[in-house]
Amino acid sequence: MNKNLLFVFAILSVVVLGLQIAEPVAAVKVIDKRVLNCPSGSQDFNSGKYVFTTYKYSNNVVWINIKGYESNGALVSSSWTQLKKVSRHKLRIKEQSIEGGWIYTYKTTTYSAVKYYWKVYRPQQTVLWTKGTSDRYWS
Rank of each mutant, 00 (worst) to 15 (best):
L83R: 02
G48W: 07
S139T: 13
S40R: 12
V120T: 14
W63L: 13
L91V: 00
L17W: 14
S13N: 14
A26S: 15
N65Q: 11
K115H: 11
G132W: 06
L75Y: 00
T126P: 00
E23N: 15
S77A: 13
I66M: 11
W102E: 13
V51W: 05
W129N: 09
T110K: 06
Q125W: 04
L36I: 11
K115Y: 04
K3T: 10
F45M: 05
F9P: 00
S139Q: 13
I64L: 14
E23C: 12
L75F: 01
G73K: 05
W80I: 04
S97E: 12
V30H: 05
R34L: 15
A27V: 14
N60K: 07
V114L: 10
V15H: 09
Q96I: 04
V35W: 10
L6S: 06
S87L: 01
Y117D: 02
I11Q: 07
A27D: 14
A10G: 14
Y111T: 00
G48V: 03
T126W: 07
L5E: 15
E23P: 15
Y69I: 04
F7D: 10
K84C: 03
D44I: 12
Q20N: 15
S58Q: 08
T109V: 01
D32C: 04
R88N: 14
T105F: 05
N59P: 01
S71T: 05
V8L: 15
N59G: 04
E95I: 00
A113E: 09
K56F: 02
A26D: 14
G73N: 07
V127F: 12
V14C: 13
V14N: 05
Q125V: 03
V114K: 06
I21W: 14
K84D: 02
R88T: 15
L36V: 10
E99G: 03
M1S: 13
G73E: 08
P123S: 08
G68K: 07
G73D: 08
K84W: 00
K115R: 13
V35K: 11
G48N: 07
P39M: 09
K56P: 01
F9H: 01
Y104H: 11
L75N: 01
C38M: 12
K94L: 13
T126D: 14
T126L: 14
Q82N: 03
N60T: 08
G73S: 07
K131M: 08
V61T: 08
N59I: 01
L128V: 00
F7S: 12
K56M: 12
S40I: 11
N60V: 07
I11K: 03
Q43D: 05
V15P: 09
K3H: 12
G132F: 04
S77R: 11
A26P: 10
Q124L: 08
G18L: 13
F7M: 12
S79H: 08
T108W: 02
N4T: 09
S77M: 11
A26G: 11
Q43M: 06
E95F: 00
I31A: 10
V35F: 10
T126V: 15
E99C: 00
V76C: 02
